[in-house]
Design a binder for these strands. Structure first.
Length: 383
RNA sequence: CGGGGCGUAGCGCAGUCUGGUAGCGCAUCUGCUUUGGGAGCAGGGGGUCAGAGGUUCAAAUCCUCUCGCCCCGACCA
């Protein structure tokens, strides 16, 4: 990709209150549209999509089937589970032309229970494991830190349905391991800890947190207090939803029993912010290659140097799918400053002087060195 | 929801206390010179001072209300 064909939407002076949000807005990942509501610019959306893919693949590996639940849920469904009242002011209510009330889903247990219920399942259909990646809305009292705690956010939510609590619990334990793997894929060092079951109700629960400057609460970990940011949360719900909503099967004793449910959440949009927060220093963002919008940021520092142009184009064409080439008609200084915000793990600069001796500058993980052009392939493969 | 702060050019801000011609930096446009970490000089354009009402000869500035936004706390899958 050439930057002349890519809407970078960079900003120079930003004062949104938190360092992380400023950095994200400067670099052109997000824009604020209203309090807690953000637009995703091409760069940010590319990152969001990569994370979504990693999470989606991980859930499929764990045995979930991907489906999709609407953003709008009929209020009646939420009245059945009792959460219409419990959620209260946090739910955004909307009305259609017939004045039917809907809520913009803050979570999707109710419609998911409904999905399984409509399928009229029998014991031998179990287990059923479903997941959904969809925008959610919670009308937070105080949105904070940009997309860390936005009102609108993208969440992956999985749901499991089993006949017995033991089966459900076994699956839950598998998911716990699957979650660890999933976060490892994004180079995130997560801490797993037991949690309260909260508003959602249920039997057992674990949360997956990272130590973060923009953490929302302080916790005790290995004897020290750290600021914790929650990235995922899983619950063994039991029959908390299936019972009031009437999702049951007839077992071999000819008894009607409610299904045992688990639910498993990951904050996708929050992960974008968390990954930027965990992978920047001194104003330079260097993301893990799995989530970086472009693995290589390429700059030609010799606009009037034929060999430089030739070499730059050669590199660009070789790594076309993973490279952003800054071809804007601006000063080299501005290109270098921009490159700090794009988040590519590799930055290549072609300087006229060094190219005379066949060398180019490469910066990997914030460390600069000059290498022979011929060695580039080895270094990129090693990453 | 309690406490604090803010809203002035596309962006970041000064001006408000003490009412009297709408300012600065960045960006943008024109021209020339530049080009190894956000280039320099010269010239130009751009404003419903968040909105409504009030006080006054006169309001960005004082008073009242409304809206929006941020921070601390409480809350929080």
């Amino acid at each position: 990709m050439k930057s002349s064909n890519f809407f970078l939407a960079l900003r120079r002076d930003v004062n949104e209150g938190s360092m992380l949000t400023n950095l994200m807005i400067k670099g052109g990942t997000i824009q604020k549209l209203a309090s807690g509501i953000y637009s995703w610019l091409p760069l940010g959306y590319a990152m969001l999509s990569k994370i979504e893919k990693i999470v989606s693949d991980s859930f499929e590996e764990m045995g979930f089937n991907r489906m999709c639940i609407p953003t709008l849920h009929p209020s009646a469904l939420w009245k059945k589970s009792g959460r219409y009242e419990a959620y209260g002011q946090e739910t955004l209510r909307v009305y259609d032309r017939k004045n039917n009330e809907f809520i913009y889903g803050p979570s999707a247990e109710e419609p998911c229970v409904e999905m399984v219920k409509q399928a009229n399942i029998k014991s031998s259909d179990l287990p059923i494991n479903l997941f959904n990646i969809q925008w959610k809305f919670r009308d937070e009292l105080r949105p904070r830190f940009g997309v860390i705690r936005g009102r609108e956010f993208l969440m992956c939510d999985g749901y499991s349905f089993h006949e017995t609590i033991d089966q459900s619990s076994d699956f839950y334990d598998q998911v716990l391991l699957g979650y660890k793997k999933m976060f490892q894929k994004m180079n995130l060092d997560v801490i797993v800890q037991e949690a309260q079951t909260g508003e959602i109700g249920g039997v057992k629960s674990h949360e997956f947190i990272i130590n973060s400057e923009t953490g929302e609460e302080e916790i005790e970990h290995n004897g020290t207090r750290i600021k914790a940011l929650e990235l995922g949360h899983i619950f063994l719900l039991g029959d908390h939803y299936s019972k009031p909503m009437g999702l049951s099967i007839t077992n071999r004793d000819n008894k009607n029993i409610p299904l045992i449910m688990g639910c498993y959440g990951v904050g996708i949009s929050r992960l974008v912010a968390a990954l930027i927060e965990q992978n920047h220093q001194d104003g330079v963002i260097s993301l893990p290659k799995q989530v970086a919008p472009f693995q290589i940021m390429l700059i030609n520092a010799g606009d009037s140097c034929d060999l430089c142009i030739k070499t730059t184009n050669k590199i660009y064409n070789k790594y076309l799918d993973i490279t952003l080439l800054d071809d804007r008609q601006i000063s080299i200084g501005e290109k270098l400053a921009t490159s700090d915000l794009i988040g590519s793990p590799i930055r290549i600069v072609v300087w006229p002087k060094e190219l005379n001796s066949g060398q180019i500058e490469i910066r990997v993980n914030n460390k600069k060195q000059f290498i022979d052009v011929d060695n580039l392939d080895n270094i990129i493969k090693a990453l």
